[in-house]
Amino acid sequence: MLTTALVCVGLNGFSQQISAPSRYDILYNYGIIEAFIGGLYKGTLPIKDLKLKGDFGIGAPDMLDGELTMLDGKAYQTKATGETVVLDNDYKTAFSTVTFFKADTVFYVNNATEQQNLLEVIKDGLRNINAMYAIKITGDFGHVKTRAFPPVKAEPFPLLSTILDKQQFFDIQNTEGTLVGYHLPEYLNGIQISGFHLHFLSADTKQGGHVLDFNGHNLKVEIAELKSLELDIPTGHDFQNFKFKPKHSEALERVEQGK
């Protein structure tokens, strides 16, 4: 197997080899979460293009129509009706985060555990609190509470925070399945959601959604630390004219202005 490398010339005139990042080390992010929750729900990236960037991840379907989960290279949509379907390659996503998943840490939890306890164990074991991690949890779930939004229809689209009463909740009982998601650092908040963000997909791929709570046993926990972020933003009119909230840092402003 050939190893791809970049070659550059150092200050001393000798060539230096810089290894290119493995595709397993890259977190690919399409869109900006602040813009998405601010009403940019139209899908603009085809699933076939998203699959070129990863085989594992989570996102949002076109027009806020449910929740998107990618597992083993297939993209699934869990609708507000509770139905989960495989998405066609031409279907478009408004916001998604994927990677080619390859775990570098694996451990097992055989006894029954609640969401809060397990996530605390995972967080305490992360060796770098400022790194990006993909997380996959597979096993037997006694209970998973998920949600999905119904599609929006007419513009101007409402802020996501103003239609929380529209979300539909699902109480999934006694099933095998997989939690798919990430733990991301605070400095990405706004581009992404910091902390844990998980979706669920049942083993029969008929149930899923955004995870609000769970408990389970006989769980296999797989974690992949990601080394770099690839960010793509939409190029359409809606994104070009979206008004982001200013983010002020007095310390940075003083340094920039030399005061």
Rank of each mutant, 00 (worst) to 15 (best):
V9F: 05
D124R: 12
L179M: 09
L159Q: 15
P46H: 10
E253V: 07
Y133P: 12
P61Y: 09
A75G: 08
R147K: 09
A60E: 09
S249M: 02
N110E: 14
S228D: 15
T105M: 09
Q17M: 13
K245L: 08
G142V: 00
H237L: 15
I233N: 10
G181C: 09
D165H: 08
D140N: 08
L219R: 08
T69I: 11
P234W: 15
H217E: 10
K102E: 12
D90M: 08
I122S: 10
V9S: 11
F239N: 07
L64E: 04
L188F: 00
I233M: 15
N128K: 10
E256K: 14
I137N: 00
E186F: 12
G258T: 14
L184I: 06
S161N: 09
A94K: 00
T97I: 13
I135S: 01
D104G: 13
G10P: 04
N130R: 14
Y41S: 05
A80R: 03
E176M: 12
F200P: 03
F36C: 01
L198E: 07
T78M: 04
R23H: 11
A224T: 15
V180P: 08
V255D: 14
I37E: 05
F214D: 01
Q17Y: 07
A251F: 11
L27E: 04
G73M: 05
A94D: 00
I129W: 01
I122L: 02
P46E: 05
T113D: 02
L87S: 10
S96T: 13
I193N: 07
T162V: 01
T3D: 06
L87W: 08
I135W: 00
A112K: 02
E176N: 13
A203W: 01
A80I: 01
L40F: 12
Q77Y: 06
G54W: 08
T178Y: 01
M1S: 15
I47P: 10
Q167R: 12
A94P: 00
K153R: 15
S19C: 02
D171S: 12
T138F: 00
H248M: 01
V180Q: 04
F214K: 05
L45S: 03
K259Q: 08
F242T: 14
E120H: 11
N111Y: 12
G54V: 09
S15H: 11
